[in-house]
Design a protein around this nucleic acid. Structure first.
Lengths: 204, 204
DNA sequence: GGACTCGGTGCACTCACTGCAGTTAATACC
DNA sequence: GGTATTAACTGCAGTGAGTGCACCGAGTCC
């Protein structure tokens, strides 16, 4: 019995956060993003407005409540850049397979994303965290240099752009984001950077 | 003599806009983005705060005053997607050569961009306009279908990501953005999408 | 059981941004 | 040349996001 009680406070905190995010997404979908006030979200979740900002830095961030964990998962899945035979192929695989199409909440999110520009802003913002992870991974596998850093960030940006478009295509047009994402990523990054990878290392 | 007087009002309007943008960038650089209020920018430019918002929709937009014209120029340079032999190669050329490294103001902008997250948000926002232009161009040359739309947006996103990273690499590390951008874009989009372009059309 | 921590609250504040009702000067029209 | 119109700009009052601060009260630690 005691095993259930891990941490009362932590449980309550997570519950509040979950409830806030749930009501936020519901209200954004039902009434629109701009038409929904933080006050509304908070009182729908039964807490004060001040509490909302204890959990999320911005109104839009409530639409991406699991962001930090997802970035961490992604980092773990990517692993060490030096430990992989073909880093770019590995990147294609991890990125496309990481597109979570399981929960209906995510679908709602990306459907919204295609319409609400404030949420695309937030999405771009969250992408920057992924960009850092991908860039760090690539620099790790290529070795550090100015050129490598720029290339790493360029490829990270490009790959994230493909993921974003795939997810919006999923929310908007119903395509299979994993398949499309992998296909395009693989074509972009697979062979083209395969042979010339040496020329890239020679630039250090 | 009369030839000089094209339009008094238009001239004044552009002058106000230019002055606002100039002071905005100056104050952002000197004191930081968050530390600068719209009121400060406006009074530095000798106009009211209300006038600022007559010229720019947001505080951050003042850092990108020539955005609309640049998008229009880009659209013109890209031309008709059906009129070009190799649309993707043409895209690589137009995108990388469009990176304007002439004015010192642009350099300041991208140096700022690497640091101020609110400006990167604005940059992502402006990129969406370019995304539409690129996507429209690609759809025009490939023909329209769900797959083509998703692919077009994916490639547009990816290419813009490369441009963004190149420009930040310029502001931040001093690399030549045109060379780096073209090199990476060409590798990503040149040959890989060259042969298999047929398979893409077969998906319609 | 007392000290402490921490999630949540209320309040007052700043600041970006908007709607509206002006004013003034350039321009178009006759 | 005089008049009507337009459009850049202004002032003001308002909304709503986000913050700093002092505080409460329940869970937690020893």
């Amino acid at each position: 019995m005691a095993s259930q009680v891990v941490n009362q406070r932590e449980l309550q905190r997570l519950e509040t956060r979950r409830t806030l995010a749930e009501h936020a997404l519901r209200l954004f979908s039902a009434n629109g993003f701009d038409e929904t006030t933080v006050e509304e979200i908070a009182s729908a979740a039964g807490v004060s407005q001040r509490t909302f900002f204890l959990h999320f830095p911005t109104k839009a961030a409530a639409a991406f409540p699991d962001h930090e964990e997802r970035v961490q998962d992604f980092r773990n899945n990517l692993g060490d850049g030096r430990a992989v035979g073909n880093p770019l192929l590995h990147l294609c695989e991890v990125m496309s397979s990481g597109l979570d199409t399981d929960s209906p909440m995510r679908r709602t999110r990306y459907r919204l994303l295609a319409q609400v520009s404030a949420l695309r802003d937030e999405d771009s913002r969250t992408d920057r965290d992924y960009e850092e992870v991908v860039a760090a991974y690539l620099i790790q596998s290529w070795g550090d240099s100015i050129e490598a850093r720029v290339r790493a960030h360029a490829i990270a940006n490009a790959a994230l752009g493909v993921c974003r478009a795939s997810l919006i295509g999923w929310g908007d047009e119903g395509i299979d984001p994993r398949r499309v994402c992998f296909e395009i990523l693989h074509r972009m990054l697979g062979s083209p950077f395969d042979g010339p990878l040496q020329s890239m290392q020679s630039m250090q």
